[in-house]
Design a protein around this nucleic acid. Structure first.
Lengths: 262, 262
DNA sequence: CGAAACGTTGACTAAACTCAAAAATGGTGG
DNA sequence: CCACCATTTTTGAGTTTAGTCAACGTTTCG
């Protein structure tokens, strides 16, 4: 019924090739992915577009790119050239403060778009790092913009997509602002679960590809606090943790936790 | 040199009319504002556009609207029709949780745009409330989108503007995620100060139009904590507080506080 | 002028951080 | 394949921070 976990690690994209190279590279021209046939289309730029409109997007320069775990897709300050649709795998986005502290600002799964915040002033704001061997679809933004200008439906979809980034961050803001530590963690787990479910994966058993430190950074907690909370939730039979593999047991209790008052 | 505080309360827009009505209303057609002559232009949609491009925007349906303190500009769930440029005054945006708790997610000043997150799915996500008698420029989004499609420069500016919202929220995210309470408050004050300075107001003396409770909600703190911290900062001669009037004295110390480790 | 909203302060409690040490895991080279 | 190293995770003890409850002063507004 669900795509098994193991599959998720290399991604569900049917035309994905096995990932065995040791550095990022651009695929030969023959490998250019097509939005009109992409399996992730319903979560990506082409969401809700007719087949015909989706074919317009095929005209935009797009290159599939393979990124090994730990490799960087873009860095803050790099000039915006592409935005990236995650085809397989997962990424974190990180912002480094002037004083050297790092904060994880995002955790992106397949079908989500990376690099949108660079549109504001033409430069990437954060660093995007692959959390596992991954594939992205690199979309030349300037071309996307002009193609979109020609097709109102595509343009509107582009706007929806950009704005969806705002909404996602607003949710995260809410989580950080209103909730206690445990509620933040519970809310985060439910959020990941829902995003996976929307893509056809099991919502109850998944791999969190971030370390405790990265999770903590994302949620504004220390890594020890994250670890303790996971242990406690496991002791209370709310979920099971085995390293990075999470199994949700009592989602009702989780959502109670997530909406607990500050 | 700076526009005095008192002026800020009714806004710097030279063609603003005195605000003395007792409910929100739309101005008669004669009062339609023009981007090409707007004093806030450099902070708004027309930023960086040539006079000619800015005149294109004048073709988009736009209505000036007056909003009294406490009045609501839009509510979550309302269908997106306009986005709003703040011409004078200030607004908070609030999200209400299922359990009834409210969180302030934004504090918007003149020249900033309200309602962008509604583009994601056609409905406003938050509630926008005027914190003082204010004026907005209501821009019909569907028309803006089609005008933008015809003029690449305008389109790109629209995208920059939307993406800037993402960046602003990312900064707030960072503040909530990485910083201690006192650091958050210090960072918030510096942020407001910088935004006012960019608009020609004194960066060192300003009115914070939010209550302690609203500030706390925005920063993920209790109102008592905000109050205590302001008192402490005043005791240490970092700033002066008199109700909602803030005078920054030692901005160096403030930025040290803002970047203090968690 | 009086009520309601807002702001300050104090005492106490709960949550989360820090430092520290040990256990578990994963990857690498011999 | 195993031993070793580096990284990650867990757990404990003590400290700091911020939340809670409560009382009281101030301001605003009808």
């Amino acid at each position: 019924m669900y795509i098994p976990l193991r599959e998720y690690q290399t991604g569900p994209v049917s035309d994905a090739q096995p990932i065995h190279v040791h550095r990022a590279f651009d695929e030969p021209a023959g490998a250019i992915p097509r939005c009109s046939t992409c399996l992730l289309r319903q979560f990506c730029l082409a969401e809700g577009l007719s087949d015909e409109s989706a074919r317009r997007l095929d005209g935009v320069t797009r290159v599939r790119r393979t990124i090994r775990r730990g490799e960087v897709l873009f860095r803050p300050g790099d000039v915006l050239e592409h935005i990236y649709a995650v085809r397989a795998g997962s990424f974190k986005t990180v912002i480094t403060h002037p004083d050297g502290k790092e904060q994880v600002t995002g955790y992106m799964l397949g079908g989500e778009i990376l690099g949108l915040s660079a549109i504001a002033n033409g430069k990437y704001v954060s660093e995007a790092v692959a959390l596992e061997d991954s594939q992205v679809c690199a979309i030349r933004f300037s071309e996307l913009e002009s193609v979109a200008a020609q097709f109102p439906v595509v343009l509107h979809q582009l706007h929806r997509l950009i704005a969806a980034g705002i909404v996602r961050e607003q949710n995260q803001l809410m989580r950080l602002g209103i909730a206690r530590g445990e509620a933040r963690l519970a809310g985060f787990l439910l959020d990941v679960s829902a995003r996976l479910a929307a893509r056809g994966y099991s919502p109850n058993a998944f791999l969190l590809r971030m370390t405790r430190e990265e999770i903590g950074s994302f949620l504004g907690l220390q890594l020890e606090t994250v670890s303790r909370m996971l242990s406690r939730m496991q002791a209370q039979n709310t979920l099971r943790v085995k390293q990075r593999e999470i199994t949700l047991i009592d989602t009702k209790r989780l959502s109670d936790l997530a909406s607990a008052a500050q």
